[in-house]
Simulated assay, not measured.
Amino acid sequence: MTALLVALGAAVGAPLRYLTDRAVQARHDSLFPWGTFLVNVAGSFVLGLLVGLPVPDGVSALLGTGFCGALTTYSTFGYETVRLAREGARLYALLNALTSVGVGLGAAWCGMLAAGAIT
Rank of each mutant, 00 (worst) to 15 (best):
T119A: 11
A89E: 13
G52N: 06
V82K: 05
L49I: 05
A26V: 07
G9H: 07
G111W: 08
A14M: 15
N96E: 08
G69V: 09
A14K: 11
M1G: 13
Y79T: 10
P15I: 07
G52R: 03
T76N: 03
L19N: 04
G66F: 13
T76E: 12
A14L: 13
A14H: 09
L50P: 01
D29F: 09
T73Y: 10
A23P: 02
V55S: 12
A108H: 06
L95K: 04
Y79K: 12
V51C: 09
T119Y: 13
G9C: 10
V41G: 02
M1H: 11
G78M: 05
H28L: 05
A11V: 11
A70D: 10
M112Y: 15
L16C: 13
C110L: 15
E80M: 00
A3G: 01
A23C: 05
V24P: 01
A7W: 03
L8A: 07
P56H: 01
A115T: 12
L94A: 15
G88E: 11
V12G: 03
V82S: 04
T72D: 04
L19V: 14
T65N: 12
G88A: 04
T81K: 04
A89R: 13
V55F: 03
R83P: 05
G88I: 06
P15G: 08
A108G: 08
M112E: 14
R17S: 02
G106A: 15
V6R: 09
A93K: 04
T72L: 06
L49C: 11
W34Q: 07
L50E: 02
